[in-house]
Design a protein around this nucleic acid. Structure first.
Lengths: 143, 143
DNA sequence: AAGTAGTTTAGAATAATTCTAAGTCGAGAA
DNA sequence: TTCTCGACTTAGAATTATTCTAAACTACTT
């Protein structure tokens, strides 16, 4: 199974516009990564997992480009980085307000919608500092 | 300046007991690391920072041993690992229920006491899984 | 068609952490 | 005390994720 018509005919042009709006040239690599990332429901990837996935799909992209692209997309606000594991970095296509379950056994993330969890009582930041964001990670494991 | 009498006469024996209770042999290295970690108020360290600190204090310990020891102390419940930075691992001598400010600019942690923040609405874990713990990280930066 | 700045890439470089294999030490037995 | 053995420590190599470098390539403007 290769790429479906859906991905090429619909997702890619969609992606091209996203990239242009973000001020990024719509190169082949970026377009292909973007359609893998944004062509379906929200997802969580690592640089390796995305690289493996696109290589598997027959796309020629270097791992360095995957890293570059993930960071550029993150800077452009198309992705968000999630810090849950000291060993590797995760990127989330859902950039809205939400939190995560982290399955420690499998190294897998599951979104928790933004309205679900309420965090109350966050103290004001020390003088001269501002809150960038509040992350909640619910660490779960096989019971 | 070497070790003070306080550290040797009070903190170290205290540490020796801690180690014995944890089932860890009170070796010179573990005792010295323990008194640096537990001989004062709660603190946050990385393997490098602790290693630098003890070497500076004239103690002979290898970085590998610092890593080993931090992990053993963590397993024994004497320390807790805090994941806030993809680049390095932090260890916290405060193992009780509490949360953190993370100063992204300096890579520094500040404790937020356990009663301060309330997290409501945490969904039940997926079937077959149990919540290990809920971490809240308030990321702050210079404004 | 050509120029140029932005991109991609292979491979080297870095940084944190772990592993390995050999030497050392602590605590109980003799 | 001395012996013994498993636990512990260590230097240095190895591993892993990520970043850097410098050269080749490509999208867009003129």
């Amino acid at each position: 199974m290769g790429k479906t018509m859906h991905e090429n005919a619909v997702a890619a042009p969609f992606a091209a516009e996203k990239l242009r709006l973000a001020g990024l040239r719509p190169t082949r690599q970026r377009l292909e990564l973007a359609s893998h990332l944004f062509g379906g429901p929200d997802r969580h990837v690592t640089a390796e997992s995305l690289h493996d996935e696109v290589v598997e799909a027959g796309i020629k992209v270097s791992l360095a480009t995957v890293y570059n692209t993930l960071h550029q997309f993150t800077q452009a606000g198309l992705l968000r980085q999630v810090i849950v594991d000291a060993a590797r970095g995760y990127f989330d296509t859902n950039t809205g307000d939400h939190q995560h379950f982290f399955l420690e056994d499998e190294g897998m993330l599951i979104d928790i919608p933004g309205e679900t969890i309420t965090v109350a009582g966050v103290p004001t930041a020390p003088p001269g500092m501002t809150v960038d964001r509040v992350d909640v990670v619910v660490r779960i494991r096989r019971s």
